[in-house]
Amino acid sequence: LGPKYVGLWDFKSRTDEELSFRAGDVFHVARKEEQWWWATLLDEAGGAVAQGYVPHNYLAERE
């Protein structure tokens, strides 16, 4: 699936296409579209919880 990303700060969605998340949440990014990335929010087991657009500057690649 490629690298995983972690949320740096809490983010509250403003549209139906955006995905709310908390700092520390883990994502798989499917598409990078300039300022907004289409991402899947993952649970602790790595299963998909939700999908939506997230601001790229709120995520960091997980080491």
Rank of each mutant, 00 (worst) to 15 (best):
L1P: 13
P3K: 13
W37S: 01
K12V: 15
Y58R: 01
W37R: 00
G24E: 04
Q35F: 15
H56R: 12
G46S: 05
L8V: 07
G52R: 03
A45M: 13
E34H: 11
R62H: 14
W38C: 07
A39L: 04
R22V: 11
V6Y: 11
P3N: 11
W38K: 00
G52F: 04
L1V: 12
E61T: 09
R62D: 13
P3E: 10
G7Y: 05
N57G: 09
K12I: 15
Q51E: 15
D10F: 09
D16K: 11
S13Q: 08
L41E: 00
Y53T: 04
R31V: 11
A45T: 13
K12N: 14
G47F: 14
V29E: 02
S20D: 08
F27T: 01
L19E: 04
H28Y: 15
E44Y: 06
K32Y: 08
G24K: 04
E33G: 14
P3W: 09
D43G: 06
R22I: 08
S20W: 06
W36D: 02
A30T: 15
F11I: 00
P55I: 07
G2E: 15
F21E: 00
H56Y: 14
D43T: 05
E18M: 13
P3F: 09
K4H: 14
A60R: 12
K4S: 10
K4E: 14
A45I: 09
G47T: 14
V54E: 01
F27Q: 01
N57V: 05
R14D: 11
Y5V: 03
N57R: 07
E33C: 14
V6R: 02
D43V: 06
Q35D: 13
G46C: 08
L59H: 04
L19Y: 02
E34M: 09
A45E: 12
V29H: 01
W36V: 07
F21T: 00
W36P: 00
K12H: 14
L42A: 00
E17S: 13
Q35H: 15
W37V: 06
L1M: 13
E17F: 14
A23F: 03
K32H: 05
F21G: 03
A48N: 10
K32A: 04
V6F: 10
D25V: 06
D16Y: 07
L1I: 12
E44L: 09
L41R: 06
V49E: 04
W9T: 06
D10E: 06
V54F: 02
K32M: 08
L41Y: 02
S20V: 05
R62N: 10
G24Y: 03
E44T: 09
A23R: 11
H56M: 13
F11H: 07
R22N: 11
